[in-house]
Amino acid sequence: MTLPVAEVRSLPRHIFRSTEAELYRYPSYVREYRLTKRYIEDVTTCSDSPGSGSEPVGGGPLRIPDLQKAIEKVQDSRRLRDLEGCIFPIEEAMGLLKETMPDHWQLVEMKYFRGRSWLEIQATLHLSERRCYDIRREAIEHVAPLLWGAYGRNT
């Protein structure tokens, strides 16, 4: 789903800033998602509690993982669902941006996901300062409706 530029011109400032903030938070969301998922799996599969259904392996502290229990815990985790709700729309938006506007995608990737400075981005992409900010605005105007739905459109 791509939106014509004319349809989403001049986003309200709060929508622009909220979209930009979500893009900045994306790497943290992904990191927390992976750590939370790994933690739930580790706690579930390495439980030493009696009656956990796992058996000692070779007399050591390691246990045979109860994979069904781990899968249920991961699926029931509210925090993981919340993180997925933050991660997946951004990934979808970035996938569409990469397909339709690769130069915009590259700028967003460098600025928001890798934390590069505007000077580094200008030098790497061979862009003027003004063009960097224009591409940034255009990219956010295309991403916002995918993150916020009708709130991200100019009404």
Rank of each mutant, 00 (worst) to 15 (best):
R79I: 15
S117A: 08
I40Q: 03
C86M: 15
D48H: 06
N154M: 02
E55Q: 11
Y39K: 10
E129T: 08
L97T: 05
I90G: 11
E120W: 13
F113Y: 11
L96N: 01
K69H: 08
Y29T: 11
R81N: 12
R130T: 08
D66R: 08
P102N: 00
I90K: 07
S117P: 04
R9Q: 12
Y26K: 12
H14Y: 09
P12Q: 09
V108M: 03
D103A: 07
T155I: 05
R25P: 02
K98Y: 04
E32D: 10
P27F: 10
I64D: 12
A93E: 05
Y133N: 13
V57F: 00
P65A: 05
I135V: 03
S28V: 13
Q75P: 03
E141M: 02
E92L: 13
C86T: 13
I121W: 01
G149W: 03
Q75A: 14
G115L: 00
T124G: 10
D82R: 12
K111P: 01
H14S: 10
E109G: 01
G60C: 03
V108S: 03
R63A: 00
L119Y: 14
V5S: 09
G149L: 02
P4L: 09
G95V: 02
V143K: 04
R17M: 09
L125T: 13
R38H: 12
S128E: 04
L62W: 02
Q106A: 13
T45N: 09
L147R: 04
E7Q: 08
Y26H: 15
L146D: 08
S49G: 01
R17G: 00
E141I: 02
V43H: 05
P56D: 06
T44P: 04
L67D: 11
C132S: 02
E72L: 08
S52R: 01
D66S: 01
R31D: 15
V143T: 06
A144C: 04
R130D: 03
P89Q: 11
V30P: 04
L67I: 07
E141A: 06
I87S: 09
H126N: 15
Y33K: 13
G95S: 03
L147F: 06
E129Y: 09
V74D: 05
E92Q: 14
L11D: 07
L127H: 10
L147V: 09
Q68K: 04
E91Q: 14
T19N: 06
P102I: 05
H126C: 11
S128W: 06
Y112R: 10
P56Q: 01
R13A: 07
V143Y: 08
E41L: 09
K69A: 14
C86S: 15
R130L: 10
Y39W: 10
C46R: 07
S28P: 05
L83V: 12
D76R: 14
F16K: 13
P102M: 05
I135N: 02
V143P: 11
P27W: 10
E7F: 01
Y133Q: 14
